[in-house]
Simulated assay, not measured.
Amino acid sequence: MKPVSLYNDIASTSYPGRGIVIGKSADGSKAVIAYFIMGRSENSRNRVFAETEDGIKTQAFDPSKLVDPSLIIYSPVRVLGNKTIVTNGDQTDTVYDLMNEGQTFEQSLTTREFEPDGPNYTPRISGIVECENGNMNYAMSILKSADGNPDCCERYTFTYDKPINGLGRFIHTYMSDGNPLPSFEGEPTLVEIGNDDIDTFAEKIWNSLNEDNKVSLFVRYIDIASNKAESRIINKNK
């Protein structure tokens, strides 16, 4: 599979929904994570990312306009030891809690399925990055309905051991805009990560997202040798 431009892939549709990017910098020194959210409704657009002790949480930009918090207020990023968990919903807490009890990333997600927001049945996408002894590995997961049929939950986990410098994977909830929204299909897209500094990388992703629908972006660079992390947040609502 030939890698594609991350920025062109993001820009190729007006509504990829929520997206996770995980990869490795071109010099091999950093694990790279990005997570973005988009919105078409007023409720979805009324959000910002707020920093927490180990990651981020979503919160209402204008609390008076918050209608239903159940699927839009959650902690997308949490850290468990040398593992960074990133998801598009409250399954972040599920993965954190069950892995803390000794289960694996994949096992913990067997307790969850796609979101109950028919007719879209938005997939739950998740990722985990581990940096240990100067090495990095990561995994991604998607839980989705069977082509829009909620009677079946399809579960896919993709693991990447000793990832290649300068490359990453990109998974998002929707293939494109539509009604209902079509779920992501196939293996996470192989994308070029490059060796930009964190601010340039974040700016390029942000500028690639559809102007009307983008809401918030989180980027984290983790030094693989030391596990020290540097993060950036960009919110449309300020």
Rank of each mutant, 00 (worst) to 15 (best):
K2D: 08
P3V: 03
P3Y: 00
L6S: 01
I10N: 05
I10M: 09
S12D: 08
T13C: 06
T13W: 04
Y15I: 06
Y15V: 10
V21S: 03
I22F: 04
G23F: 01
G23K: 03
D27Q: 06
G28L: 07
G28T: 09
S29E: 13
V32E: 00
I33C: 04
I33E: 03
M38E: 08
S41F: 11
N43G: 12
S44A: 15
S44V: 14
S44H: 14
S44Q: 15
N46M: 11
R47Y: 11
R47S: 07
V48A: 09
A50Q: 14
E51F: 10
E53T: 14
E53A: 15
I56Y: 08
Q59E: 15
S64W: 06
K65P: 04
L66T: 03
D68R: 09
D68S: 09
D68K: 06
I73A: 04
I73R: 02
Y74R: 00
V77L: 07
V79R: 10
G81H: 02
N82H: 07
K83H: 07
T84L: 05
I85H: 00
N88A: 00
G89A: 04
G89V: 01
D90P: 00
Q91G: 06
T94G: 04
V95S: 00
E101G: 09
Q103H: 07
T104W: 01
F105G: 00
Q107E: 14
L109Q: 01
T110F: 12
T111S: 12
F114N: 09
P116D: 13
G118F: 07
G118S: 07
P119C: 10
P119W: 06
N120T: 10
N120K: 05
Y121W: 08
T122C: 05
P123N: 08
R124W: 09
I125W: 03
S126M: 11
E130L: 10
E132G: 08
E132N: 13
E132H: 14
M136P: 07
N137R: 15
N137C: 15
Y138P: 03
Y138T: 12
Y138L: 10
M140K: 09
M140L: 15
I142Y: 11
L143C: 14
D147S: 15
D151C: 13
D151Y: 14
E154A: 13
R155W: 08
F158K: 01
T159Q: 12
Y160N: 06
Y160L: 09
K162M: 14
I164E: 14
R169F: 08
R169S: 08
I171P: 01
Y174M: 06
Y174E: 05
M175Q: 15
S176D: 13
D177L: 10
N179H: 15
L181W: 04
F184K: 01
F184E: 02
E185K: 11
E187Y: 04
P188W: 05
P188C: 03
T189C: 05
E192P: 02
I193R: 00
I193G: 01
N195D: 11
N195K: 02
N195C: 07
D196Y: 06
D196W: 02
D199R: 10
D199F: 12
K204N: 06
K204L: 06
S208W: 04
L209A: 08
L209E: 04
E211Y: 11
N213M: 13
N213Y: 12
K214H: 03
V215D: 06
L217S: 07
D223E: 08
A225T: 13
A225D: 13
S226T: 15
K228P: 01
A229L: 05
R232W: 07
R232S: 11
I233W: 02
K236C: 05
N237W: 03
K238T: 04
K238A: 04
